[in-house]
Amino acid sequence: MDRELLIVSTFCFFLAIVRTAVAIRGGAYRPAGFNFFAIALGFVFQTAFLSVRGHALGRCPLTNLFEVFIFLAWSVSLIYLLIGPAYRLSLMGAFTAPLVFGLQIFALLAPIDLRHSLKHSPTPWLELHASVSLIAYGAFALACVAGLMYLVQERQLKQRELNSMFYHFPPLTDLFAAITRLLWLGFGLLTLGIAAGFFTGQPLPYGKVAWSLGVWIFYAAILLARHLGTTAPRRIAALCVVAFSAALTLLWGITFLSQTPSM
């Protein structure tokens, strides 16, 4: 039952992608409510999936790589729905939908939905650590999406080749401000998540701690470069894309290569 909910959710994101692709192909892209509603509907089904799975497990559904990916996709949708309209980043939906779709389709197709015998019983600190860290990854994912939008728009401006999407981008300086806010949001949440990890009362997995600190330091360095004003916005945007790709790989590494459940 829960996987069916996820399939419906994935289909909603797929519809958003198709709509965008058709509009761009027709040379007449304009951000419509359709993308927002498709993502909102997809989010409702994601939430239903996590709820059903959580009830079945009797804990926060973060027990294997499959659930981690879905929780991450849910975080990305949640933050998009919260900040997209607020910052008038309507076009962000066109970039967010493929990312969420990719995460979910990978989770559905890869043989990673494995049941583990859990070593530890869940504690509030452990659940806080895992969930907040993943929501932080959601913010970083959106910073990566905004970074990609920045790079696409910047390239069009430099090359002087403006397509029908160009005038729907948020202004370059507004987009950079949104990247900064998303970086701070993600960084704050990640700090909280890592700190909560030290209060679980369980032995610290040093590999995970090192990786998490590595991600934390990477993002701290990006924020430092941003505020010192010594790095061009284009490079900050590119770093957001690199950092999230690295963080996602590390997340997979932490959860999969260690052959242990995420909690």
Binding site: Q153, L162, S164, Y167, P170, P171, L172, T173
Partner: peptide, 19 residues
């Protein structure tokens, strides 16, 4: 969509950069 005179293209581009 899109400006069709040199002056309005320049202003539109400036708006797209600075808001």
């Amino acid at each position: 969509r899109g400006a069709v005179s040199v002056g309005s293209v320049a202003v539109d581009l400036a708006e797209q950069i600075f808001g």
